[in-house]
């Protein structure tokens, strides 16, 4: 594990916070710039089993590539994205950040805890998404980029009517 005192750790934190700022600010095109060409963005299904990891290796809620994430972002500009009309207000809270060296020199494995608050319109009830993010960050031309993200949510029955936001 890379120590919080290591400059590399601070760089990872800076990346995660900047990313969250873009997501919470609705700057999705800019967010896409932080992703590598070969990004894998997955939201495996949470299951309740007697033993095992609690997430299905056969079923996912989302399995995205850069092209499909770009499509989702383009959709928001069509005037027909009713699930995001009005747009969700999100707040990404990222804590318990753990950084480990990746298999390749330019890569880092980053695990963090995630709590996302989502409010909509004048609704007085909000959605809370809680879970763990398992990220692979890769240094490309001197900048960190997101090469893989697996989101493990802590709900087997998603307590929300949709996942129209990005984690």
């Amino acid at each position: 594990m890379i120590s919080p005192a290591d400059p590399c750790y601070a760089e990872v934190l800076e990346f995660l916070y900047a990313e969250a700022e873009l997501l919470d600010g609705g700057q999705f095109s800019e967010w896409l710039e932080l992703l590598t060409e070969d990004i894998r963005y997955r939201l495996p299904l949470t299951v309740t089993r007697k033993s095992g990891p609690g997430h299905s290796d056969e079923s996912e809620i989302m399995r995205e590539t850069l092209a499909s994430l770009q499509l989702r972002v383009r959709r928001l500009t069509t005037g027909f994205a009713w699930s995001e009309t009005p747009p969700s207000r999100t707040r990404h809270l990222i804590t318990n950040v753990r950084v480990r060296p990746g298999e390749r020199a330019e890569e880092l494995n980053v695990t963090s805890n995630l709590l996302v608050y989502r409010g909509r319109g004048s609704e007085t009830t909000a959605d809370l998404f809680c879970g763990e993010r398992q990220d692979l960050l890769r240094r490309v031309d001197g900048r960190l980029k997101l090469a893989s993200r697996t989101i493990l949510l802590d709900q087997a029955v998603l307590a929300s009517r949709d996942v129209s936001i990005f984690f």
């Binding site: 939201l43 996912e60 809620i61 989302m62 399995r63 995205e64 499909s68 499509l71 989702r72 959709r75 027909f80 994205a81 009713w82 699930s83 009309t85 998603l158 929300s160 009517r161 949709d162 996942v163 129209s164």
Partner: peptide
């Protein structure tokens, strides 16, 4: 998955 389910771009508009 891109069209249906909670993350599906079709189904989330139905839900709304």
């Amino acid at each position: 998955l891109r069209e249906f389910g909670p993350g599906g771009m079709f189904e989330q508009d139905d839900m709304a």
